[in-house]
Amino acid sequence: MRLVPWQPEDLLRRLDDVVSVYGEAMGYRSELLQTRRGYIGAHARRRGFRAVATLTTEGSLAGFGYGYRSGPGQWWHDQVRSALDEDDRRHWLTDCFEVVELHVRPAAQGHGVGARQLRALLAMADGRTVLLSTPEADEERSRAWRLYRRFGFVDVLRDFLFPGDERAFAILGRELPLAERPVNARRDAG
């Protein structure tokens, strides 16, 4: 497998594959995936958009990740901003890159794909801080949680509820730039 940077056009050209990986990784129903398709396509045009993809030797999409500059007027940014106090808003959101999606097909998980994608994405990120949201889970058992903790992400908000989703999310953040190796790196997993 090889990791490649993607331009907005690359993501849009492979949007069917991106939505497929997203659906497999998140276990979402197909009707939800059609709505996400529109969001993902719109995200590719956001300021500071950065993306990476992991391709198999046959060219199939094994995983992807993307983000952009977080700012007022963006739904996610405004939801998180409303839950933070003024000091945390200033610290976390003033100059922030948002990791919007980071997914690996279940069959490719456990081989370091997610870690390589996250490292590459954070190396390309533009900002002083980076934020992401992830469903609340057993931190010891969740691959995503272990990955984010190894990369030095800390709790910003816990048990946060986004409108329209009954699941609780954690908002995690860290300072940029990314050090040469992840914090407490043992081996890359993902």
Rank of each mutant, 00 (worst) to 15 (best):
G65W: 03
G48V: 01
E31L: 09
D78A: 00
V104F: 04
D78F: 00
L93K: 00
D87Y: 07
F64C: 03
Q34T: 13
E58T: 14
G59I: 08
L93S: 05
F97P: 01
R105G: 05
G59P: 04
Q109F: 07
G27F: 12
H91Y: 15
V100S: 15
D85R: 09
V99C: 08
S60L: 12
Q79T: 08
E98P: 03
R46P: 02
R116P: 00
R81W: 08
E58A: 14
F64D: 02
F64W: 04
R90Y: 10
R119P: 00
Q79V: 12
L32N: 07
V52A: 13
F49S: 01
R105M: 09
F64M: 10
R89W: 04
T56S: 15
Y39T: 09
W92A: 01
G59K: 04
Q109G: 06
T54L: 12
W75T: 08
E31T: 11
H111G: 11
R90C: 09
E101W: 03
M26H: 08
E98M: 08
R37N: 06
P72G: 07
H91E: 13
V99R: 01
T35P: 00
L93C: 02
R119I: 07
H77T: 02
D88E: 15
V52L: 13
A44C: 15
G38A: 09
I40Q: 03
R50V: 13
A108E: 15
A25N: 02
E101G: 06
G73Y: 05
L32H: 09
A115N: 04
R37T: 06
T57A: 14
E101L: 06
H77V: 09
G65F: 07
H77S: 11
Y28V: 06
G65T: 06
V80E: 07
Q34V: 13
R36G: 00
Q79K: 11
G71S: 10
M26A: 11
F64I: 04
E86A: 15
H91F: 15
L32M: 10
G110L: 05
Y68I: 03
E58C: 06
R90W: 10
T54H: 11
A108D: 14
R29K: 12
P106F: 04
L55M: 12
V113W: 06
F49W: 05
T56Y: 06
R46S: 12
P106G: 06
Q79N: 13
V80D: 01
R37A: 05
L93R: 01
D78G: 01
G71I: 00
L32T: 09
A44I: 07
S60Y: 09
A107Q: 11
H111M: 08
G110N: 09
